[in-house]
């Protein structure tokens, strides 16, 4: 009995301290200013089709200080790689570096919930070593399912005290009244969460609304 009580207590303490730790890491976001120490390494998550177009529109406006730029694609995505090569090739400051990485897709459109969980775990298996190796200052994403394991890996770096990775999320312009599934998951752990319609800003007070940005 005492053993059981001890076990329950231990689980409770570990769970509680983990929650506190996550809270502290997420709270530290506003004080984290990697730009003051030189260039900012960005990991941009490219999804499929429209998501990639939107993320490249955002990347286009970031200055040369944001380097190197790592793009992560789902391995079933063939079109995004061409789009990224075209985009980076057309940049003026072509001396700056960009690298493309691939991980398994965590969720296909209309995939069922239960199989999504398994494929997300598989994507996490690949995301953690990738993010731990790259140690980006910022993870920038806008909604494809692949965002979740990559942001989780970024958060883990912070939890372990190895590096604070800023999670910047931009909800797709398609979302007017309701967040996407990815948006709902990442709302709590992101450091800067952008929405593009004022109705979402009203519903999600932590979000940032600058009008349409893509």
């Amino acid at each position: 009995m005492a053993l059981l009580m001890g076990l329950v207590l231990a689980v409770f303490v570990v769970g509680l301290s983990l929650i506190i730790r996550v809270y502290v890491v997420v709270k530290a976001g506003s004080k984290c200013r990697p730009g003051t120490e030189g260039s900012v390494a960005v990991l941009a998550v490219a999804g499929s089709g429209g998501h990639t177009t939107e993320i490249l529109r955002l990347m286009e406006c970031l200055s040369a200080a944001y380097t190197p730029r790592h793009y992560v694609l789902a391995d079933t995505d063939k079109m995004s790689e061409d789009k990224i090569h075209n985009f980076e090739g057309s940049k003026q400051h072509s001396d700056s570096q960009f690298i493309i990485h691939r991980i398994p897709r965590s969720r296909e459109v209309q995939q069922s919930w239960s199989s999504s969980v398994i494929s997300t775990l598989k994507a996490l298996w690949y995301s953690v070593p990738l993010v731990f190796r790259l140690r980006p200052d910022v993870v920038l994403c806008n909604g494809p399912g692949t965002c979740v394991p990559l942001c989780a890996a970024g958060l883990l770096l912070g939890i372990l005290g190895m590096k604070k990775v800023l999670i910047v999320y931009v909800e797709s312009i398609c979302r007017v009244h309701n967040l996407s599934m990815t948006g709902k998951i990442l709302y709590t752990i992101s450091d800067y969460f952008f929405v593009q319609w004022s109705s979402l800003k009203d519903k999600y007070p932590k979000s940032i609304f600058l009008g349409r940005i893509v």
Binding site: S30, C32, R33, P34, G35, T36, V40, R57, L58, E60, C61, L62, S63, A65, Y66, D137, V138, L166, V168, V170, I173, Y192, F194, Q196, I208, L210, G211, R212, I213, V214
Partner: peptide, 19 residues
């Protein structure tokens, strides 16, 4: 329909990150 302004996003991020 006026195009969105990614520049606003970039300016916000520059300021927040101290770039």
């Amino acid at each position: 329909f006026l195009p969105g302004q990614p520049k606003l996003f970039a300016n916000f991020l520059d300021k927040a990150l101290g770039v």
